[in-house]
Design a protein around this nucleic acid. Structure first.
Length: 426
RNA sequence: GGGCGGAUACUCAAGUGGUCAACGAGGACAGACUGUAAAUCUGUUGGCUUAGCCUUCGGGGGUUCGAAUCCCUCUCCGCCCA
């Protein structure tokens, strides 16, 4: 595979925040191995993790070898760079399971075969056997506490009256630096990638490799991805956006990107797709000309959904969106309806509850995903926020057998885009 | 080990005996406007059998007609001294 200009590519995509000196020359000099860390805290990656995966994917496409390091050991401790609450220990089985699931997701984005085959390793494999004394003697002596305390991640916590920092979390950077050293020795890894908040930890690793192995290593970071209002990217109203279809349905995943703001859609195209510069710029021009058609958001949602879930899932997600947003849900045929229901949160009621007088929405809504309590249900109904099969409901509305589409399902909606399917159980 | 300060709803943060389901801000949600956008305006934001009632102010106990507010105790956190 021809070696591409990895750093140049990151630069035009706006994914390059910082890089250590000499990295460009180093990459130009041969096929290198680079890694990025992941927390195995769940059995699925999130769109937040997708940034890191894309870094590795681009590295690989530039002719280098990507390594994903799963923090089976460090995940137990918690990086003070993030938000700070001590973590609970995960047992080994759980970590193994999570690693397996995450690997499956990465397989869509990384190539695990060929000369630049990607690999996944777990840092518990080398961190667990190390004794505390060995760690202090061989690694700890290379770290200056003065320097460690100057790091932003630590300094913030030292200044904070409420928080403080435990010795355990304080030691996190040493472990991460050791990871880099280990990978350098075991796999010839010379590059670490991460978010900009990781730069301090990455440099620690580079320093350690220079001191202990007398070798040169490098690091590069991507800027933190924020929404235009400055809040963290990757959360929807329903919580985290996961890559796993059973946690975030392809429909919701597709919707998440479709709802990207005009301000941000260009950046997301650069970050999360493999589209070229010209194609993205042309989309941006189209977006400017006809913003109401949202060509950029559509292209983005299709491309990312395609990447993560595959083409057929993407088509399905689009069909569902079509039905829910521009079509009349009552006109759906039975097969289509089934597809729609699969992608929506759903619950069941018994046929008996709907017969005769019917079931009051005030009682029903709290049992669905649309309202948390009867009080809230009343509020939504009074505000005209709820509809049944596309028809506005009121406080008095009762759900009856007649509401069931094809005798099976009623589609409830709260607000503009929150749907819930109500099935009838036999 | 000693001294001091703190813990209030999703978050920050008022409140120091009754008028407190608890000021305010942010966030979130809904309505209008729109492009399934942004901005803006309006409303809601503990629960219920909703002009009323019930449960909340770190945990437990006490004082009082009445406690988020006073006392005791426990837990956790911060600061200072050893």
């Amino acid at each position: 595979m021809a070696r591409g200009d990895f750093l140049g590519e990151l630069a035009w995509r706006g994914m390059l925040h910082q890089a250590t000196d000499g990295l460009a020359d180093h990459l130009a000099g041969g096929s290198r191995t680079g890694y990025c860390g992941f927390d195995p805290t769940a059995d699925s990656l999130t769109v937040g993790n997708l940034v890191s995966v894309m870094l590795l994917a681009r590295l690989q496409r530039s002719g280098h070898k990507p390594v994903a390091v799963v923090g089976g050991a460090t995940g137990l401790i918690g990086d003070p760079s993030g938000k700070a609450s001590e973590r609970t220990l995960m047992d080994q089985d759980r970590v193994q399971h999570n690693v397996k699931c995450q690997k499956l997701q990465m397989q869509r984005l990384l190539d695990f075969s060929g000369p630049t085959a990607a690999s996944i390793v777990n840092n518990a494999d080398w961190l667990t056997p190390i004794g505390f004394i060995d760690m202090l003697r061989d690694i700890g002596k290379h770290f200056s506490v003065n320097q460690m305390m100057a790091r932003d991640s630590v300094a913030n916590r030292l200044e904070s009256r409420e928080q403080g920092i435990s010795y355990t979390e304080f030691s996190y950077m040493i472990l991460q630096a050791y990871d880099f050293l280990h990978l350098h020795r075991a796999m010839g890894c010379t590059l670490q990638l991460g978010g900009s908040d990781q730069f301090g930890n990455i440099v620690s690793g580079v320093d350690l490799i220079r001191r202990v192995a007398s070798a040169q290593a490098f690091g590069a970071t991507a800027p933190l991805l924020l929404k235009s209002d400055g809040t963290k990217f990757g959360k929807s109203e329903a919580g985290n956006v996961w890559l796993a279809a059973d946690r975030t349905t392809p429909y919701r995943f597709h919707q998440f990107f479709l709802n990207a703001s005009d301000d941000q859609v260009g950046q997301l195209l650069r970050w999360f797709t493999f589209m070229g510069q010209e194609q993205i710029e042309s989309l941006e021009v189209q977006q400017k000309e006809r913003p109401q058609a949202r060509p950029a958001q559509k292209a983005l949602a299709d491309a990312v959904c395609d990447l993560v879930h595959g083409a057929s899932e993407t088509a399905g997600a689009k069909a569902v969106a079509e039905a829910l947003f521009s079509g009349d849900v009552r006109a759906l045929d039975a097969t289509k309806l089934k597809d729609v229901v699969v992608d929506l949160p759903s619950s069941a009621v018994s046929a008996a509850q709907l017969s005769g007088e019917g079931l009051s929405l005030i009682d029903l809504l709290p049992t669905t995903t649309l309202a948390a309590s009867k009080r809230e249900a009343r509020e939504f109904l009074a505000a005209g926020a709820v509809s049944v099969n596309g028809e506005k409901a009121t406080i008095e509305t009762k759900l009856k057998t007649a509401h069931l589409l094809h005798g099976e399902v009623a589609l409830l909606k709260r607000g503009k885009k929150l749907w819930h399917a109500l099935r009838v159980s036999v």
